[in-house]
Simulated assay, not measured.
Amino acid sequence: MEYLTVRETAENWGLTDRMVQQFCIDGRIPGAQKFGKSWAIPAEAEKPQDPRIARKQGQQADSSLDYTNLMPLMNTPFRPGKCLAAVEAMAAGAQRDIALAEYHYFSGHPEEAVKEAEPYLTSSDIGARLSACLIYAYANLPLGRIQRARFALNELNTALASRKNTPQIEAASAFVAAAGAVLLHLPLPEGLPEIQGFLPLLPPGLRSFALYVYAHYRYIRGDYAASVGTVEGVLAMGAAQYPIPAIYLHLVAVMDCMSLKQADLAREHLLSAWELARPDDLIEGFGEHHGLLGGMLESVIKPAWPEDFKRIIDITYRFSAGWRKVHNPDTGHDVADNLTTTEFAASMLAARGWTNQEIADHMHISPNTVKRYISTALEKLHIRHRQDLKQFMLR
């Protein structure tokens, strides 16, 4: 890719150097890379639109919303093993392109997801644009392109802040903005309406994923019983016919059950998620949630599906590296980044009061091995006491 300097870009766009620098800082130029005190800007990058013009045009272009292009694969029921067939059956254009970006993201191929989502970042179709921003934000995290991820997250919050007058657009904006924040364990964006206000307006598949986001939020707040109750209620009402939301619902239930020391129920939820995911290779969610699953992947997936486990761990390392670069500075919570996934899993359980014997039984290793993992983690984190692990673990 060819890059231009700030000065060259400013001359091409008829702007001041300072304005171009500000666009870069605000994350409004996809692909811009910081080098020292300046920026390298893709030669093909388009000049960001004046926000006042964008608002005026948005009032006309976004006066209505067709949910067809809002995360269409997430909102599609399909039998496990038929995910790509469901995508190929969609109408050519934005719907199929966005669905393919979803498929590539959820199957652990972020490079392809970025390429497919990027053309829709400025689409006049608000459903396609919101979908593209959400996919683009999360797909750039494992690629280490944090500025691009921040650009897309900012676009989601901007869409929420500048909601138009239709309830459908408000619901769509709230849905993607909440997903963008909660999955990164960030504070909820300003202006987010109560979930009861926008949930009924979403189509069934997106409603199920919105309730996963809500359950995840309850988990972060420590309301584990309420969170797992939400999951079980949503699944009982038919969410399982939408595999992508159902996978994520089962995963947050695993998180809740492990926090409640209900390992057998956690295992059931994990295997339910795996049965939905494995036929289509939809393994991204398992890698994203690894640290929160309390060693359940090591206990269940690793012994039976070792090659899949290796791929999940690769996703974990790549995704968590990008996740921390957004989460840690934005929250001030210094989640550990120098532990192996096994050390992190053991330390998460230890931080939640599990004994070495309990951790050993759960992860199918010896108590001495657990002790070694915990000791290594304490040494890497420069702390002396087991109870101090909490400050470096996921919440």
Rank of each mutant, 00 (worst) to 15 (best):
I283E: 03
T355I: 02
I169V: 07
R129Q: 11
L70F: 07
A171S: 13
W354D: 00
P303C: 06
W354Y: 15
K82Y: 12
C24G: 03
V370G: 02
L292M: 06
Q33T: 08
I146A: 07
Y120Q: 04
S272N: 15
A266K: 00
G291F: 03
Y67E: 03
E88F: 13
S227D: 10
L265P: 00
E343W: 04
N75L: 09
S366F: 10
V176Q: 04
P193N: 12
A86Q: 10
A40Q: 15
M90C: 10
D314A: 14
I365G: 06
A273F: 09
T355Y: 00
I135F: 11
S63Q: 14
H104K: 14
K82R: 14
F309T: 01
A239W: 07
K310G: 01
W354N: 00
V228W: 09
A253E: 10
C133S: 14
E11M: 09
E232V: 01
A304V: 03
A54K: 12
P203H: 07
R324K: 12
P329N: 05
S64N: 10
A94V: 05
Q196T: 15
I146T: 15
L100D: 05
V370F: 11
L265N: 09
S299M: 02
E379N: 13
E190R: 12
T369Q: 11
I98P: 08
P245Y: 05
T341L: 03
K371C: 12
G127N: 02
R52K: 13
G191Y: 13
E343T: 00
M90Y: 09
L271I: 12
A346V: 07
P367M: 12
A117E: 05
V252W: 03
E112P: 01
L339I: 00
Q59C: 12
D256W: 04
I135G: 08
P303W: 02
I169G: 09
P245K: 01
Y219P: 00
Y219A: 13
A377Q: 02
M393F: 13
A149C: 11
G332A: 07
L134G: 03
D125K: 00
H269D: 05
R318S: 11
T230S: 09
A113P: 11
E268W: 10
V213R: 00
L188C: 12
E379M: 10
E190S: 13
R278H: 06
G36P: 08
H382F: 15
R79C: 07
D223Y: 13
N140T: 08
